[in-house]
């Protein structure tokens, strides 16, 4: 169904490894934070990325934004390969992709007023006229539901939700087409979460934004995402449209994640409990990375890595239960 829509972002076999070095600079290990992830985002859609802490979902978001060099693979933004550009060459693309951060308390410089923080964004992109800058920033504040008098206030004078609004204003100020939302609501009160998600929704409608929405909260993902990718230990193990994924989860890990979600009024489903710990990404299991905790693991899972298969249109699963 998405084939006819414009591709905004595409990653091809993206890998991000962090090397662990000892005091003398000798490499002693490699953390495979993101391992061979390919995904495609179309204009105006929200792609939800779920997984437990440490599975590499934030690293994936930051790799796409090229906040650090990529180990291998490609990132395509609006038809341009940006994976090997230098910081200077990247600058024009920085206007097209932005990020909203998890913690609204550290994402704003405590010594700068909201106005200064926002104006700095335009200064970086070469807007020299002060009045133009202020006008644009005031407009961004209005768009995110803040008042003009908030312009000269410091971050500590705001609540968490208001700060997150400032963070959103900073991200939309350069008119991006693609925004990485890195757990944008998980640090907020539940009542505020809904407000911020509605704001993100409204902005998406108005500006045709594309979101990569990173979260560990299944109900938030269910509410906001059009398509969902499930990550485990650096791998994308399942990807499907939201409805399809929530009604017909195929990967054993997705099934376990969903069975842990509480639902009001619903008959309590059987809870699938995963045993064991998340393996260290320093020494990921051979074969299928999930086999150490998978209730259906067989001998072949330990031997051969599984490739994603398309079960039904748009529904990809990397699990040998569905043929390998």
């Amino acid at each position: 169904m998405n084939e006819d829509r414009q591709k905004i972002l595409e990653t091809k076999h993206l890998k991000k490894y962090f090397s662990i070095k000892d005091a003398l600079g000798k490499q002693t290990g490699v953390v495979k934070a993101v391992d061979d992830v390919s995904l495609t985002l179309h204009k105006g859609e929200t792609y939800g990325l779920v997984g437990e802490s440490g599975c590499g979902k934030s690293t994936l978001g930051r790799s796409i934004l090229r906040l650090f060099p990529i180990t291998e693979g490609e990132v395509w933004l609006e038809g341009n390969d940006i994976s090997n550009l230098s910081p200077g060459q990247l600058r024009p693309y920085r206007k097209k992709m932005q990020m909203i951060f998890q913690d609204p308390y550290t994402s704003l410089n405590p010594r700068k007023t909201v106005g200064e923080t926002l104006e700095e964004v335009l200064k970086i992109h070469g807007e020299k006229n002060r009045t133009v800058r202020e006008e644009k920033c005031q407009e961004a504040l209005r768009t995110v539901g803040l008042r003009p008098e908030h312009y000269n206030r410091f971050p500590h004078e705001f609540s968490g939700g208001q700060r997150q609004r400032v963070g959103i204003a900073r991200a939309i100020l350069v008119n991006p087409s693609f925004i990485v939302c890195d757990e944008p609501v998980s640090a907020l009160d539940v009542s505020i979460q809904a407000q911020i998600m509605n704001l993100l929704d409204a902005l998406q409608e108005e500006k045709q934004l594309t979101y990569l929405f990173v979260s560990h909260n299944m109900s938030v993902i269910n509410y906001i995402a059009d398509r969902v990718g499930v990550m485990y230990l650096g791998h994308l193990v399942e990807e499907a449209d939201t409805e399809e994924l929530f009604s017909n989860p195929c990967h054993p890990y997705t099934q376990a994640l969903l069975s842990a979600v509480l639902q009001i009024g619903a008959v309590r489903k059987e809870r699938i409990e995963l045993t064991g710990e998340l393996p260290s990404p320093l020494h990921p299991p051979a074969g299928c990375v999930f086999h150490t905790r998978c209730p259906y693991a067989e001998q072949k899972c330990k031997e051969k890595p599984v490739m994603p298969r398309e079960l039904s249109p748009g529904h990809f699963v990397a699990c040998s239960l569905y043929g390998s």
């Binding site: 906040l67 990247l90 206007k95 990020m99 550290t106 704003l108």
Partner: peptide, 11 residues
């Protein structure tokens, strides 16, 4: 601090 990361993301 993430505001430094935000600045890096802005170029």
């Amino acid at each position: 601090q993430t505001y430094i990361e935000a600045l890096e993301a802005l170029g």
